[in-house]
Amino acid sequence: MAMLRPRACSAETKYCPGCGHGIANRILAEVLEESGRDKRAIGAIGVGCSSLMPDTFDIDCVQAPHGRAAAVAVGLKRCRPDCAVFAYQGDGDALAIGLSETMWAAIRNERITVIFVNNGTFGMTGGQMAPTTLEGQKTSTTPMGRDAGATGRPLDIIKILRGLDIAYLARGSLSGSADIATAKKYLMSAFDAQDAGYGYSFVEMLSPCPTNWGMSPSDAMKHINGVVRQTYPTGEFLRGGGNE
């Protein structure tokens, strides 16, 4: 079977071997091109590993300040309502420094799609603790493992966003071919919700970071399926014209 690379994935990505970002970029490109949205898509790209994306992703985009991708996307979408506008962010970007921008774009039910790649760590800066780091997980700033008593429990943003009046909310996983196909469907549904004018859509993707997890790429995939999903269950949580 011939595997056609999406046109937007114009060059080899710059991510580490086994990183989930390459998969996320690929299915995003497929969704945009299969729906013809690539011609009218604009992305606001987060800082960290996400910032490697514009070099190899041939879609109009803005490199946002750290944490502010949702706000940049709001500026784009309000000016260009007919464009398919997305923010692409990691966990440090969207949930630590940018939690305010993430929340307020959702609270205002802005017609943007936020793509949130959750690999439980600050990848680019060397694997420090992120809001999504699991309890007990060792990182370069939690050398004894994350202590929930001192740092709080892992942040499940879906639980928070579920209470808001938004259009679409889902969490997929990039840890196997069936899951990747499902995550791609979630992305398509999110852009459909945006185009229908329903409002804010948010798709989280559980993503492997073999480099900072100290695992082989295949072990990192197994770790998501066996461990990470216990803290972050996957599925569609909101769908349609608002909170149901």
């Binding site: 502010r68 996307a73 784009l76 000016c79 305010s100």
Partner: peptide, 26 residues
Amino acid sequence: GVFIQSESELAGISMVYGAAAAGFRA
């Protein structure tokens, strides 16, 4: 035109950044 009372100045200038990138006077 578009008026947004932003959640902070950090968000406000980032929205302006997006609008400027879209070609608007912002």
